[in-house]
Every structure is written in structure tokens, then in C-alpha cells.
Design a protein around this nucleic acid. Structure first.
Lengths: 195, 195
DNA sequence: GACCGTACCAAGCGCTTGCTTGATTACGCT
DNA sequence: AGCGTAATCAAGCAAGCGCTTGGTACGGTC
């Protein structure tokens, strides 16, 4: 059985990601991961160098995907309003594609960044912020976005609202992720007051 | 030295809260807590029954404070728009008063709720949601809040944005917490589009 | 049919964990 | 001076941790 090596590897990674997301990285043991896959804990080390290596692979592929999509948004020749909308859509798509990785990143950044190996997480966060700020500031300069709100604060409020949707949003036929993206965009751009 | 017993207890609690918030509950050891206070780990058990008991006391006093302030907001005879503003202010005040507890709650709910002792966290979350929904739905019924946005989704977006400010917001003289509250309220109610 | 790499198991190592225990100290009260 | 209590230390236990090791089963290759 299991003639396909990569298959097993990915199943381990998937189980690990789910456990890391639900219980936290520190609180998840290699034995739990092995149990979920149906092997002994020692056998994990045939596929991965360490527990950290599993976390690393999960988080890295998540960040790679995020960077790729952000670049695509910024490469398009669009106005700030559209770009903001597209950033929200791209973010939610990444959240949907890597729900466990998103949750790990959200819950355990503090813990992870103090491990030498994951120092790169700091830079990743700064990159994301720079992208959003670029869009917001262009919007303010062009007069389509209010200039009485601090763009850094705006970014952080929107980022947390969008990213943490991973904790509660489960797409359905009646309420797909595209609709969440529209409601997010509409809330942030137009506000919830009736006019 | 340390003739006041309660003093030492609170210093332990403060150190524990800071460590729990920064590293996560599971990743913080009782020896680290003791080191911060300047005693041996065994001595902690003269003041607390267990590590869980410390977490419990931190989180409980946080939730008590939150509930109290929310009740005060809802007891006032105000319109939905004001109430929403007051809920945001109250939330930010609690975040400011219990920054470590807020962070612990945000980062470790998943981990904590699966420990029997902390099952009450589920109900606490539902209570908070019910309060916000009550205000939002009253606003929709009175026609001051748009009816094309799902109130549950609105609540979750605003909640995450407001609560996670604990991770990045440090009040200064130029930008006190009251201003953050105003910007939050203005963003959510009016949106960031210039009109 | 000898050989090799892959995938796994069984066992356990060294270490850290939360927590316990018994002895010792500091201090207020009489 | 003597006593009682609170606070602490020194030492260590059982359990669980991440990870290593030595060995086995098996499919493919020449």
C-alpha cells in the first residue's frame, strides 16, 4: 500500500496543519499527528526533518501563494478603489485556499517569530502592510479615499477583519466567498449607515 | 519582605499574563513564570492551585469587566448609532484595561475551550455576539443601518477589527484610545470613501 | 536471486513538563 | 522568649515531549 510517496507526505502535512490550526503549534504533539495519519510518531521523521519543518512547509507555501496573488493585483492597471477590492478578494481567496495555514499564522505568529527559523515571518508581515498602504495612499492622493483617517490604522482594521474571517466563515451556495468579499468591500468603502 | 500576601499574588498573575499573551499559554512554562517573579516554580503552588487556575483568574476578571461595561451601554436609553459607538468604545476600553487577557483570549480560545475547565468561554462569546446583534438589528429595523448586509457578518468583521487592535495599538498623547474609537466608528458607519 | 531504496515499526533516550513533598526561614503576636 | 502561620526553597517524581536508533517488509532493477 501507499505506493505513492508524495501522497503520504501530503496527508501528513494536511493532518498536521489541521491540528496546528485547531490546538496551536506548541500544544500539538508529533504523536497526535502520527495517530491521525495512522502511523507511529517515529515514522514521521522519514518524511520530515522535524516538527518545525512541517510548520515551515505549511506556512511558506501559504505566504508564497499570498505574495503571488498580491503581485498580480498590483500589476494590473486599475484605480485605487478597484485595487482595494481586489486585495480583499485576493486575501479571502488565500484564506479559503489555506484555511489552516491562515489560522496558524493568526494564532501563533508571536510564538513562531521567537523561534529563529521563523524570523522571516516578520518580513512577510511588513510586505503585506506595504502593499495595502501603497493602495490606500494612492487613493488618498487621488482624492477618492478620505484623508482624515490614518492609513496605517485603516490597514490594520481591515486586515484583521478580513483575515480572521477564517475563524468563522464557511462558504455555502447561498453565501459564497465572493459575496463575503463584496460585503467586506462595501462595508469598508461605503459604511453601514443607510443614506 | 513581601509582608503583603496579595501583592505577591498579583505580581505573579501579572507576570503570567504577560508571558501567556506573548508566547501562548501552552508554550509558557511554570518555571518561566517563577523566574520572572524571582522565586522557584514550586513556590507558585503556594499561591495558585495550578497553571490553569492562573489562566482562569486572568480570563475571568477580563470577561467580568467586559460584561459589566456592555450592560451599562445597553442600559442607557440611546439610539442604535450611539449604542454602536458606545459598544466600540467599551470594547476598546476593556482591551486597554486587560491587554494581556485580551490577547490570551484571541490567540488561545481554540486551545482553551477544549479544556473542560474553560468550557464557559463558549457562552461568553455567544453573550457578546448577542449584544452586538441586538444593536445592529434595532438599527436595521429603525432604518438607520443598511439592510443589505448580514448583521452576523457585520458583527464578526467589526469584532475582529476592534479586538485585534490589542496586537498593534499602543495609545499615545497624539493618538489616544478615544481617537481610535472615533476612527473605528467613522470607518464602520461612514466608510472610507470620500464623498 | 542478489541488491537497493522506501516506508514503516518497536523501543527507548535525554530532556522538560506541571506539580508534590518535606524542610527551612521570616515575621507578627502574646 | 516562644509559638503559629505564611512563604519559600531544594529536590525530585511521573508523565510526556521531540527525536533517534536498529531492524524488518517489500517492490522494483539489473
Amino acid at each position: 500500500m501507499a505506493r505513492e510517496s508524495g501522497d503520504r507526505r501530503e496527508r501528513i502535512l494536511a493532518s498536521a496543519a489541521a491540528l496546528f490550526a485547531n490546538k496551536g503549534v506548541a500544544a500539538t504533539t508529533v504523536r497526535e499527528i502520527a495517530d491521525e495519519v495512522g502511523i507511529l510518531s517515529g515514522s514521521l521523521y522519514h518524511h520530515f526533518e522535524s516538527k518545525e519543518a512541517m510548520v515551515d512547509e505549511i506556512v511558506t507555501s501559504y505566504l508564497d501563494d499570498l505574495r503571488t496573488r498580491y503581485k498580480r493585483v498590483m500589476a494590473a492597471d486599475t484605480d485605487p478603489r478597484t485595487r482595494l477590492h481586489d486585495l480583499i478578494v485576493a486575501s479571502l481567496e488565500v484564506v479559503e485556499a489555506h484555511p489552516h495555514a491562515t489560522e496558524i499564522y493568526q494564532n501563533d505568529v508571536n510564538y513562531l517569530t521567537q523561534i529563529e527559523r521563523f524570523g522571516y515571518l516578520r518580513n512577510a508581515g511588513k510586505e503585506v502592510q506595504a502593499t495595502w498602504l501603497q493602495v490606500l495612499e494612492a487613493g488618498i492622493a487621488q482624492g477618492v479615499i478620505r484623508d482624515d483617517l490614518d492609513p496605517k490604522i485603516l490597514y490594520r482594521l481591515m486586515r484583521d477583519a478580513v483575515w480572521l474571517s477564517v475563524r468563522w466563515f464557511k462558504p455555502t451556495a447561498a453565501y459564497p466567498i465572493t459575496r463575503l468579499a463584496e460585503e467586506c468591500t462595501s462595508l469598508f468603502l461605503d459604511g453601514l449607515s443607510r443614506r
